[in-house]
Write a protein that binds this DNA or RNA. Structure first.
Lengths: 371, 371
DNA sequence: GTGAAAGCGCTAACAG
DNA sequence: CTGTTAGCGCTTTCAC
């Protein structure tokens, strides 16, 4: 079964498409069309009604009938046709999930948590990555609508876009927003970024740090806005002067965090503490620190926003502000499940706390008397 | 819209379910049932046949008719009912994807690449994580079948399980296997792990390393098997004695790579080079090296299997054996698309190369004359 | 307890 | 070019 490496674009495969219309349905699956409930009923010698009743475990059935039908089912390897069920029941037992990008471990974890719960409840998940593009978000939303999802869980990056807002508001099925804010009357699960960030700033300030840098992305989403807001708020609260230029908003997509952080650290009065977005940005930040020959935490303290695997396993272990992804998944699916079951109470907004995990990357500010 | 943090299980939400059956359909979506093609035809003053024709852009239509129908469509905000189309067309325009865990960035990247292509072709993707459990894989496969996926892309972790094999073989729709081997006549896209690993070993041997450690997972999948095989083969090929105890197979799930690598490095004649699975294991490996006060590459050379973001941004940058995920996505979707379009030629097996990226983590073996 | 039949929304074959 | 109609497979009254 060894094949030569083939890196070519699929030109050779493409042509197969043309042939298709000129020949009978693929001989690769000559399995005559699968057994229908009618076949089952016939083989069992009962009516389709009865067959349906045993399939759906309705009570009104003689054990005898049940047996016959069940035998027919296994004999025919019968599986109910999902499309027909969806049409008839007006329910697809499918939930749509719109995320920026599963490649971001945060979303991947969230999706996994969500899937776990919803699968247990008998739903399958459609996953679509919007890659932060308005156009895609619109298209995905529209597709979810068209495909009659029973519910959707969404985290549109373009919260502020009027078209996106309109599209979300137009959704006709139960919807839950994931850590986003949109002016529509729908359920949402949010993280408490502001108090979380305040906690971090105050922890750092307590260690004597007076110049704290913040490295986030310029994505216009709620998490970023709130983190920055919390950052500002806490500076005010404790009367720490805030130099706005210490807030770095990295252009989304690319990750030139390295250069930006290097520049920040090269300033005459460099920050003595850095708060950086988890995973990639954190990684670049760590790299920039190490390249400049600075030590953690002696020269610079570091806090990660989000708690990627490597934060805990880095040397030294990096303190992190962790969001409860698993819990968010539980909560989000819970909310959605309730709606899909008919809950028609007012939209709920559930806020989940951020937890600060203090590890060994935060120390007293250099030259500070505290600590 | 501020809500108290709520960590409680959803007991309060649960009860809503009971109410449901006793009241009319949720007032939250009083949108009478969406417009059907019949409504459109009626409003446009044409027959459903004509309506269908313009909706499906068939040629036989007067511009006049077309206009009327199109107006009715926008007026009614009509969207074809997907379930009805699926039922009628025997096609769901949906593709199932079975992976171990999207939380693993490798799979996340693969999924994203796949989704990109398939979305362009008009398919949506159902994603299911098997978490390596046989039971789940069976269930997912069965669900894909029952739901009439037009095609599936799968990477079952339990390649060797007879039940899984049977379930895969029983799949009635086009299927492509992703870097797995199963004795079934289906398309597959594979990575060239053996030559890749051989390249790494020989690179290291060329630098004078004679004791190379390999840290992988004990997952019984093709990639792991092949890496180990390539490791052995190349040792033989260049006449390097291989101490089997230098091959560490980490139990899947947990990641105690740190201890295992520490132990390996604590041996009297420790390896002078380490080849480690990307991301988490690599991270632990790096940690263990740093904790023992060893330097890269002066004391230990390191190669990553897979090329996570941080490998390139680590200090020093870590050499990596990279698999072309994007290309795998392109190829896999290509293969599937062709089958779904009716291609009925013999199953293809496309092998993609592994690329070795030499960065700065590989140096001459300590005490070696080479380099 | 069971069967007959209506119809979910759509496409396609057929007649005009 | 357009209208009518027969199902796709299933659930669910409604009689019996």
């Amino acid at each position: 079964m060894r094949a030569a490496a083939c890196t070519a674009r699929a030109a050779p495969l493409e042509s197969a498409g043309l042939l298709r219309r000129m020949q009978s349905p693929s001989p690769r699956r000559p399995k005559a069309r699968p057994a229908s409930i009618r076949d089952v009923a016939e083989l069992a010698g009962v009516s389709v009604g009865s067959a349906s009743r045993v399939i759906n475990k309705v009570h009104n059935v003689t054990p005898e009938t049940r047996d016959k039908v069940e035998q027919a089912i296994t004999a025919l390897n019968y599986r109910p046709n999902h499309a027909a069920q969806s049409l008839r029941l007006r329910s697809s037992r499918t939930v749509g999930c719109l995320l920026s990008d599963v490649t971001n471990s945060l979303y991947a974890k969230l999706f996994r948590a969500l899937e776990e719960r919803l699968r247990d409840a008998g739903y399958m998940m459609l996953l679509a990555n919007s890659l932060n593009q308005v156009e895609r978000e619109l298209e995905i939303l529209s597709t979810f609508q068209a495909r009659g999802m029973d519910g959707v869980l969404i985290a549109p990056a373009n919260e502020g876009d009027p078209q996106v807002l309109a599209a979300v508001a137009a959704l006709e099925m139960p919807t839950v927003l994931l850590d986003r804010e949109l002016d529509a009357p729908i359920d949402r699960v949010l993280f408490d970024h502001i108090p979380g960030m305040q906690r971090v700033v105050s922890h750092l300030a307590g260690l004597g740090h007076r110049r704290i840098g913040l490295v986030v992305s310029d994505s216009p989403t709620r998490p970023m806005r709130h983190r920055i807001r919390g950052f500002r708020l806490q500076h005010e609260a404790i009367g720490l002067p805030l130099d706005e230029s210490r807030i770095i908003r990295l252009p989304t997509g690319t990750s030139p965090a390295f250069d930006a952080v290097s520049a920040l650290l090269a300033r005459p009065r460099r920050p003595t503490a850095l708060i950086a977005l988890g995973t990639n940005v954190l990684n670049d930040t760590l790299g920039a620190i190490s390249v400049r020959g600075l030590r953690i935490p002696q020269d610079v303290s570091v806090v990660s926003l989000g708690d990627p695997y490597f934060a805990a396993h880095h040397m030294p272990p990096i303190s992190a502000l962790r969001v409860a992804l698993q819990q968010a998944g539980d909560t989000g699916s819970q909310l959605l499940l309730a709606r899909m079951a008919g809950d028609d109470t007012a939209p709920r907004s559930i806020t989940l706390p951020c937890e600060f995990i203090d590890r060994q990357s935060c120390g007293p500010a250099p030259g500070s008397s505290r600590g």
